[in-house]
Computed example of a mutant assay.
Amino acid sequence: MEDDDSRVDSYRLERARFYDRQLAGIDRPDVDYYRRLANDVDGSVLEIACGTGRVYLELLAAGVDVDGFDLSADALSVLRENAAERDLEPSVWTADATDFETDRRYDLAICPFNAVQNLPTIDDQLSALESVHDALAPGGRFVFDVFVPGFDVICETYGEWETKSTEYRGEAHEVRTRTRMADEVEQRFAVETELYDSSGSLVFAEDDRLSMLPKRQIELLARASPFSDWAVTGDFSDEPIEDGHSIQVWKLVV
């Protein structure tokens, strides 16, 4: 049993390292967007599901008073390694978004890059909103982004494996990914990822389950939450969301 548990932990840490390296190469406007929001507040900032620090470390490097937490201890290990390479001192801890408490009250809480979609049930989603609300100071805001479910993308790409060659740890690897509907009634989907080294040996395999969150469902969640007001814009533009936008950016106000 000890060997099996150790292998699972190794897979998860390896996955966190690979995920971090892959994200380093993406061009997504969310970092600049959240950095601007964070610089505009006078008080402290909390990042929920900060992962390996793609957004968090940029806020910290910009001088923002920012804390963060994530459910994955392995992701936070990678974040701390990245912080050490940049001579940054992070304030992060392991916690569950559905049930967390903080000693501080923040002026801004953020949850970037679809992380809210990892909450599987309505109860989990509402619990997370309540926990975030309790962590905010009066007038504080919770800002998060999720994608707009695109039926053309679902019809054309879901269910199909995609294989790409990539470099990892200085060696050639092959990564296979597939997104598929896991539960059509509950609108849950799975993202499967497999990484193989140059000899064809499996490095890790993960199956993440996420929730589709169309605009109307999030609005219903906001209405049922303790937040007093909310608004949604599209594609980090600060413009009202409309057909054609691929990203929902929600701002909930205490």
Results as ranks from 00 to 15, higher is better:
S6Q: 10
L13P: 08
L13E: 13
F18R: 00
Y19N: 01
Y19D: 00
Q22R: 04
A24T: 06
G25Y: 08
P29E: 09
Y33I: 09
L37S: 01
L37P: 02
N39D: 10
N39I: 05
V41R: 11
A49W: 02
A49C: 14
G51P: 02
R54N: 08
R54M: 03
E58W: 03
E58V: 05
L59I: 10
L60F: 10
A62P: 13
G63D: 11
G63N: 11
G63S: 10
F69I: 12
F69K: 10
F69W: 07
L71W: 07
S72M: 04
S72E: 07
V78S: 03
V78F: 04
V78G: 04
L79Q: 04
A84C: 01
A84F: 00
W93Y: 08
T98G: 06
D99F: 00
E101K: 08
R104M: 11
R105Q: 15
Y106M: 10
D107A: 14
I110E: 03
A115H: 12
A115C: 14
N118I: 02
L119M: 04
L119W: 00
L126I: 00
L129M: 14
H133A: 12
D134K: 13
A135M: 08
A135P: 07
A137L: 06
A137R: 06
G139S: 09
V143D: 07
V143K: 04
F144T: 03
F147L: 13
V148F: 08
I154A: 12
C155I: 09
T157V: 13
Y158E: 12
E162N: 11
E167H: 06
Y168C: 03
Y168D: 05
E171W: 02
R176E: 13
T177G: 11
M181P: 03
D183M: 05
R188A: 07
R188P: 01
V191Q: 13
L195R: 01
Y196A: 02
D197Q: 06
S198M: 00
S199N: 11
G200T: 11
G200C: 04
G200H: 06
D208W: 01
R209M: 01
L210G: 00
M212Q: 06
L213V: 07
P214Y: 09
E219Q: 14
L220P: 00
L220H: 05
L220Y: 00
V232D: 04
S237R: 09
S237V: 13
P240E: 06
I241K: 07
E242H: 14
H245V: 11
Q248P: 06
W250S: 06
L252E: 01
